[in-house]
């Protein structure tokens, strides 16, 4: 049976966050990566315990929106060890080119109408997964579909695509089939579309949990026993 993960949920207040966690469970998700803001930052452990009671595993997510390459590298250096998932919103080509090939970045997010071309040059460098937040679709349907179809046609099957809700309230969350329908409309088959909210993010989180564990020495080297 598939395990579904919502890789981007934005939380600002504790109560609202709890409501969203219950909603995620109702919708059929088993885990979620949460971007913490405000009071939730300090109360993450409490939130995590509450979520486990409901049946949802929580992971911390950091979303960076740097304007220069230098800023991106600095933020990555400071934060990589503290979060399970790090995503970068690429507002310009300079940050997109760095984020696409840096192994400390998990997913890159191309905003709607980015102002640069996401072409084969960027796709060739891409080592990380591309994330499509559903909230962007709700905000600007036409613009998002145009950008997303460009991304899908350039990437083809080269790298993983992940769909997340990026919701900040329970009304902005959608169930896995609804999220997957976005990729199906863009030409993916059903299995691959569902992989984008189950297999791909599960793999990503497992890799990162391994990297954050005490036994991890370096890429390809683990301490056993």
């Amino acid at each position: 049976m598939r395990r579904y993960i919502d890789l981007w949920v934005r939380c600002e207040s504790f109560e609202r966050c709890l409501e969203m966690i219950r909603c995620l469970k109702r919708l059929g998700f088993s885990s979620a990566a949460i971007e913490l803001r405000g009071e939730c930052v300090e109360r993450f452990d409490h939130l995590k315990r509450e979520a486990e009671g409901v049946g949802i595993k929580l992971y911390r997510k950091l979303v960076l929106e740097p304007s220069t390459r230098k800023e991106l590298l600095k933020l990555l250096r400071e934060n990589r060890g503290k979060f399970e998932v790090i995503s970068v919103i690429c507002r310009n080509l300079e940050t997109a080119l760095v984020a696409a090939r840096d192994s400390r970045v998990d997913t890159i997010i191309i905003p709607v109408n980015p102002g640069y071309r996401f072409d084969k040059g960027v796709a060739a460098l891409l080592r990380n997964r591309v994330e499509l937040p559903f909230r962007y679709f709700l905000e600007d349907r036409g613009g998002f579909l145009r950008t997303a179809s460009e991304i899908v046609s350039v990437l083809g099957k080269k790298c993983g695509i992940i769909v997340s809700s990026a919701g900040s309230s329970s009304l902005e969350l959608r169930n896995p089939r609804q999220l997957a329908s976005l990729l199906q409309v863009l030409g993916f088959d059903e299995e691959r579309a569902l992989d984008s909210i189950s297999t791909e993010p599960v793999k990503l989180i497992e890799e990162n949990l391994m990297k954050l564990s005490k036994n991890y020495v370096m890429r390809g080297v683990m301490r056993i026993g």
Binding site: F134, L138, E172, Q178, A180, S181, L182, Q184, V185
Partner: peptide, 12 residues
């Protein structure tokens, strides 16, 4: 079916 699901999801 995916079109219908996307149409339901896009109602805000």
């Amino acid at each position: 079916l995916p079109n219908l699901l996307l149409a339901t999801a896009s109602v805000t």
